[in-house]
């Protein structure tokens, strides 16, 4: 089936879950990433059970703490 991940069309297997996509896409911070599917946030506790459908648009929103501290150490 075809889905859109971060604006890019991708062919993925039927039955792929959000968790499966996170692993497949090698998301940098898999333990803490916000996922939206069709502009709706998916609860992190349901990543493994949320099955993606043909045409779904998925976005990964990464936490960026920011700052440039540590250079003084």
């Amino acid at each position: 089936m075809k889905i859109i991940v971060a604006g890019v069309k991708k062919e993925v297997a039927e039955g792929l879950t959000v968790q499966g996509l996170i692993e497949q896409e090698q998301v940098e911070t898999p333990e803490y990433v916000t996922v939206s599917v069709n502009e709706e946030f998916i609860e992190s506790g349901t990543f493994a059970s949320h099955v993606l459908k043909d045409g779904d648009e998925v976005e990964f929103l990464y936490f960026m703490g920011g700052g440039a501290y540590g250079i003084y150490e």
Binding site: T29, Y32, T34, F41, L61, G65, G67, G70
Partner: peptide
């Protein structure tokens, strides 16, 4: 908080000291 509900757990995300940031 709509996007990120609470601070990340320890070691879940890289810090700037670990990952760096271009000026």
């Amino acid at each position: 908080r709509c996007i990120f509900q609470s601070p990340p757990p320890k070691d879940a995300v890289p810090t700037c000291k670990e990952a760096g940031v271009i000026g």
